[in-house]
């Protein structure tokens, strides 16, 4: 033996020496945390919020598969498999609520989704800064008003006796309509209210995306002879398309999440036929009827559908537009 590096003992010690020099995974993570602790400290409240309010309650999801009793507790309640789901899909009220949810979401998507985009495009074209800021303030404002007050305004506006809508109908010699008691009027009123309340605020996302478009693209188009209309169609909209797609994916994920408070505030038994949605059904069954396990099954169904929808939308978007949430 000459002690050359290719002898087994020397090679072994060489490897060992290299291993000693290279910090381990745990050591690297610790070092990283020590160096960047401020960033993680800022992240902590959000993580805690998610753990406490989103992950911890998941433990309770199991009652969807149990004959839950408040007195026996979650752990001691007996398993009953998919019985609640069978009941759910044989329940006419649930099927009606599901149908209403899908219809209202589809209408909301169809009419509500393009409005913030149109608003952002219009704001972008406004040249007077004073007018632009005033208009933005007016359309953002409803977002900051409580749903209860918004519902109050809507009820007052559509009131058959003193509401502005019926007053206006009166000017044309039309009879007052009891809008909020008629099932056929619930969906338009609900969707219109949602657009009025949120479209302005949602347009901020698109305005931010528009602000990110390089001004030289427009300058180049101006030199090429494009009109403002052509620039909007050929530059602005394609440039903010990735943002539109991302927002659409998120919206599709929330398709069964109809604004629960607003439905509760605006609907009444007379309009259940078109107004009752999955979330209000869960609320009535779970909190008002005390059927927590049955409501949990409905809620779980809601979550699974949302998960499948968002995964599908993301995959399709990734394949065809190179844009995706992850």
């Amino acid at each position: 033996m000459t002690g050359l590096p290719d002898t087994p003992s020397a090679a072994g010690s060489g490897r060992k020496a290299r291993e000693v020099r290279k910090p381990g995974r745990l050591q690297r993570i610790t070092e990283h945390l020590r160096r960047e602790w401020q960033i993680y400290a800022m992240l902590l409240p959000t993580v805690l919020w998610m753990v406490i309010f989103l992950y911890k309650p998941m433990y309770g999801l199991q009652i969807a598969f149990k004959d839950y009793s408040v007195f026996r507790g979650i752990a001691n309640s007996p398993w009953i498999g998919l019985e609640h789901f069978e009941t759910l899909f044989n329940n006419d009220q649930f099927l009606r609520a599901l149908k209403n949810t899908i219809i209202m979401s589809a209408y909301g998507l169809l009419f509500g989704f393009p409005v913030p985009i149109l608003l952002a495009l219009m704001f972008n074209e406004v040249l007077s800064q004073t007018f632009k800021k005033s208009a933005q303030t007016i359309v953002y404002l409803p977002h900051f008003i409580s749903s209860v007050i918004i519902a109050g305004i809507v009820m007052t506006a559509f009131s058959p006796s003193a509401g502005i809508v019926n007053t206006a109908l009166g000017w044309f010699g039309l009879e007052p309509v009891y809008f909020l008691t008629k099932p056929e009027w619930f969906r338009p009123i609900f969707i219109g209210t949602g657009i009025w309340q949120e479209a302005g605020f949602q347009s901020i996302v698109y305005l931010a995306a528009i602000a990110g478009v390089s001004p030289t693209l427009y300058e180049s188009a101006v030199v090429d002879g494009a009109s403002r209309w052509q620039m909007m169609w050929k530059i602005t909209i394609p440039s903010i398309l990735p943002t539109i797609i991302i927002m659409l994916i998120i919206r599709i994920g929330n398709i069964l999440e109809i604004s629960f408070e607003m439905v509760i505030l605006l609907y009444q038994p007379a309009t259940y036929e078109t107004a009752d949605v999955v979330n209000t059904f869960i609320y009535r069954q779970g909190l008002q009827g005390g059927q927590y396990d049955f409501a949990a099954a409905a809620g779980l169904f809601n979550a699974v559908v949302a998960f499948v929808l968002v995964m599908t939308a993301n995959t399709i978007s990734k394949r065809y537009s190179r844009t995706s949430l992850w």
Partner: peptide
Amino acid sequence: APKDRDVAMVFQNYALYPHL
């Protein structure tokens, strides 16, 4: 108007449309 001056401009950052 720029379009009627019959000039073409090449910009520093190319100004290419990313979606085309």
